[in-house]
């Protein structure tokens, strides 16, 4: 059984918003999972791991880290950014490696994503969380300014 609540930190600096505000129906309707999103500060930035664990999947525009207890968190850098085919994203960590919460994973520029006509909003998703349990995510930041590494939400 799950041991402790999992603290999930903001992977980027910007403004924390509700998932329902993400301009993509699949994310906005919690279909990928519950979570929160960050409208990132524009300009070059570094994306950090939201939890300590193994970087099980690393793509230029998205990655998944599984914590010690097996729970996975997805960070998606912008919407439809898979179509950029990695352009503008620099990987700073290796798939399969251990990453502490707050460790650099990817360098990118949300302003460039926006200039390409895409939303740079970053959903941060609790994968396989029970979507019906309202209490799954507690302590979601008072939506507003966050810095990378600040607590974003707690996964009960």
């Amino acid at each position: 059984m799950r041991s402790r609540p999992l603290a999930v930190v903001a992977p980027v600096s910007g403004r924390a918003i509700a998932l329902s505000e993400v301009p993509d129906a699949v994310f906005a309707q919690n279909m990928v999972g519950p979570g929160a999103a960050i409208d990132p500060d524009r300009g070059p930035g570094v994306v950090v791991s939201p939890v300590s664990g193994i970087l099980v999947k690393l793509k230029p525009h998205a990655f998944v880290v599984t914590a010690e207890d097996g729970r996975g968190v997805l960070v998606h850098l912008g919407i439809d950014t898979v179509n950029l085919d990695g352009g503008g994203f620099v990987l700073l960590a290796e798939e399969g490696s251990m990453v502490p919460a707050g460790a650099p994973v990817i360098r990118w520029n949300p302003a460039a994503v926006e200039a390409a006509g895409l939303s740079p909003v970053c959903p941060v998703i609790a994968l396989d969380a029970d979507r019906t349990a309202a209490e799954v995510l507690t302590g979601t930041v008072s939506l507003g300014a966050v810095s990378a590494g600040d607590r974003l939400f707690t996964w009960a």
């Binding site: 993509d24 699949v26 994310f27 279909m31 990928v32 998205a62 179509n83 998703i125």
Partner: peptide, 14 residues
Amino acid sequence: RVGLHARPAAVFVK
């Protein structure tokens, strides 16, 4: 085209 990444995977898993 992009494979089973976040959105298509979510639709499939649902």
